[in-house]
Design a protein around this nucleic acid. Structure first.
Lengths: 197, 197, 197, 197
DNA sequence: TATGAATGAGGCTTCATTCAT
DNA sequence: GATGAATGAAGCCTCATTCAT
């Protein structure tokens, strides 16, 4: 008797969808294609997801930037990273690794594109960004003596630089690690001069 | 006598399309909606555009970042901006103004989302980004003594910060001008410390 | 319990299409009309045919002359028809019966009309005709002592006469059987005089 | 001053249409294509033809078989052709020449395909065929002592053979002239044996 | 005569979703 | 849980025809 590994169907669908969504966008990917790649029948899709939009929302949430920096919310992590530089490098590596896996970067940009028409996604995105920036700034102030606003700007510039790398990184030919180091440098330099005022 | 404004049909279509594309994305906007808003018949659309994709491509090109900084390619502009700070502020204002008009920011993010499946757009985007970054870096080296690579990083961080503002600017509540000034500060601080090495 | 006759949908579509194609031609028959007559929904059509052209090709192949004379390829059939006359009458009856059923004659002429723009049909048609003529001639030489070329001409004239009857038969008021007998006469007379040389 | 050759516009349209109709069929050829090839504006088409169907009808009439054998209706022509053989060869040459020019053969088959839905064409076709066959038979009886019905059959077979050559002539590799001679042979042989009864 | 922008009905095809098995 | 045939609304695009110039 051929037994399908129990509970794997949903994962097969999600996995197939991510790949297809990444390549073709949410709208140009059909449920037919998803089930074909997942190797299940059409109707099966609707056993696991209320609708295609339902799946899109689920994936959209999974690629929110807040998911990309687990160390930002781990209260004990800083003991492993005594300096701000090492901590930022860690966050940056987490971020870039996260988005280089499972087509998350591509799906992230598709998410940015559909949030206008899917209010729930838009709301989550704003909340996630705010949280992320504020927590990042708070962490910076734990390392260096600097005003919160400057920390905020610094972290936003850092985050912006990382995101920009996701869609334009290969325009300059910098390696990921090299680019990351430089981005951290920029932030540290700014904080140095801000703090010294 | 009712005179149709000569040559205005195409513009009406483009204008209607930009508005709708911005709000609903390329795929969820129908040709029917575009012509309805433009106030022309369906067939008229196809007098001016080979297909819906044709129009998408045209608009995608119009929101490329390279279009957003005219001062970057004006060889005589620097006489008006004696300092790097003033020049960067000018570029930043141009950039943010450009994208706050005609729904260009929204369309820009839709463009990022469709470029994977529209190779011609992807190619243009990469070329445009490379050009933009290189020219920005070149301009910086005309103002301050700094290595080209550092100038490149600085300008990329600057550009990234501007772009990030387009989709996350309102997460922090900074005013546009304030944010811009801060972003310029970050760049200048970095260049200061890089140059002093 | 309402059971849809299993596997009948495709046949309903084909049958509806033949009737409509025959009356209105391929181009003037719409998919809407076909599905309406077949009593299924529009989308159902595309479960069974990739496109309207796909269906046209299928039907075009089904009305090739080679399909109209099964006895031509049956190696054992000649025992039932000891004389060439009886064999030609059999072939003729098969041919005329074939084309008088299921609107095949009409569809045949539509096929002749579209083959220029559907290369695959054109190729099949030529191959089918060549095969048909050659096999017909070969059969004739099995009955009478005659050169292959004369047999070829004789069979082509026979086939031409049959085809002509399909679109101009009612111009003269000959009954089908009478016309067929006369056409066979013509062929036999020609072979008689050719053989006697 | 650039003067368009007066009265040439209509011919340009007809000529362009024949070429396009032949290649693509009536339905797949658009008025746009016709005017483009004719080098005139869209509106101009409707100065010369009430509609596209109007033009189709005009061309359909021009390729009727009756137009292909002028010698059939010339009462004095027989003096140049003292034998039936020479006369049939003349008719055959006229016929094949006629249809090998100006894409008439292709248009003829398109005509056969559309006559079902364009009653006026169908009527003309039947009338033309009847006339043609009867006149052909009448001419035969002027040459040889044979019953009218046999003459009728003989001429129909002759005509059928000629028509068949138009769409399947290249299946056998016979040259036009050779095929024609053979077709005439068939007819003559039949008449010989019919007359001798 | 000649033009060509504009029209809009209508064609082909796609695809998210349902439901009987 | 799983299937896949069936649905039909809705999308994109075509093209014969008109009409103001």
């Amino acid at each position: 008797m051929v037994t399908k590994s129990p509970g794997k169907t949903r994962e097969k669908l999600v996995s197939a969808a991510m790949e297809l969504f990444a390549k073709k966008g949410f709208d140009k990917t059909t449920v037919d294609e998803i089930v074909a790649r997942a190797g299940v029948a059409k109707g099966t899709f609707y056993l696991y997801f209320k609708s295609k939009d339902d799946l899109i929302k689920e994936l959209a949430f999974e690629v929110m930037p807040i998911m990309a920096m687990p160390s930002l919310n781990d209260p004990y992590i800083t003991v492993s990273f005594p300096t701000l530089e090492s901590y930022l490098l860690q966050l940056g590596r987490e971020f870039l690794s996260f988005y280089s896996e499972n087509y998350r970067a591509e799906i992230f940009f598709h998410m940015l594109s559909v949030r206008e028409r899917m209010k729930s996604i838009d709301d989550i995105y704003h909340q996630a960004c705010s949280e992320l920036l504020r927590e990042g700034a708070r962490r910076i102030t734990a390392y260096v003596k600097v005003g919160f606003e400057d920390a905020l700007i610094a972290f936003q510039v850092f985050l912006a630089s990382l995101m920009h790398y996701l869609h334009a990184g290969d325009c300059l030919g910098f390696s990921r690690e090299h680019y990351l180091k430089k981005a951290v440098d920029v932030v540290l330099n700014h904080l140095r001069l801000s703090a010294s005022v």
